[in-house]
Amino acid sequence: MNASRHFERWAPVLLAIALVLLWQVGVTAFQVPDFIFPSPLQIAQQFNEFKGPLLAAAWATFWVTMVGFGLAIAVGVMLGFLIGSSRVAYAAVYPLMVGFNAVPKAAIVPILVVWFGIGIGPGILTAFLISFFPIMVNIATGLATLEPELEDVLRVLGARRWDVLVKVGLPRAMPYFYGSLKIAITLAFVGTVLAEMTAGDSGIGNLIQTAGSQQRMPLAFAGLVAISVMAMAMYELFSWIERHTTGWAHRGSQGH
């Protein structure tokens, strides 16, 4: 029992190590040239060699993402609150939002460049546009799924809409909210890198783009690794916050 629990805990790490080993062995065995598909070892070497520029690029991408993500939380929570608490607003806003969300964000970046020029503007906005939707939908869902009986219990006592929203709706929406943050943060990184690749003058996206055009695959791959590490770290952070604030919603997994 104990041993299998240990195994479960370390399984993701073991799998990652196994995959990296397989990758290294495969690339070496078939003598794949590094400008096609670099080996993990070569990527690690690039990391070591270009520590400075990689860290600078990662930092640029990170804070642009966080600003866009912050905006997404603010706007997503507000819109979600609006459409989750009013049926009219839901009917009016939701179809528009779905249509808007279906627009490929890559197609918007050139427009943003025209409006805001090359630089961090398009990055922040793309990160925001791509990540606010899941936050909005989840807040709205959490607010809208209120048991009618509980609402009766409260309304009989003279509860106003606001009381019901604050005492029941919002706490109920919290697990949905944290769940959506985990999805939205990874999307926000995608948005930033997307904008940096077409319209950036800094960041990991820009670095990958430049490295790619110079056929320096190991460096481009190092950029990819950096971005996934950041996204994974942020995902884990929100997961941790979720577990420690809304444990009541995950009681099934608390026991073991």
Partner: peptide, 18 residues
């Protein structure tokens, strides 16, 4: 309008889990 002098309970306890 809603009568505050009443209390209600249903088949589902609908307690707030938090």
């Amino acid at each position: 309008g809603p009568l505050k002098i009443s209390g209600m309970a249903f088949q589902a306890p609908s307690l707030l889990p938090w």
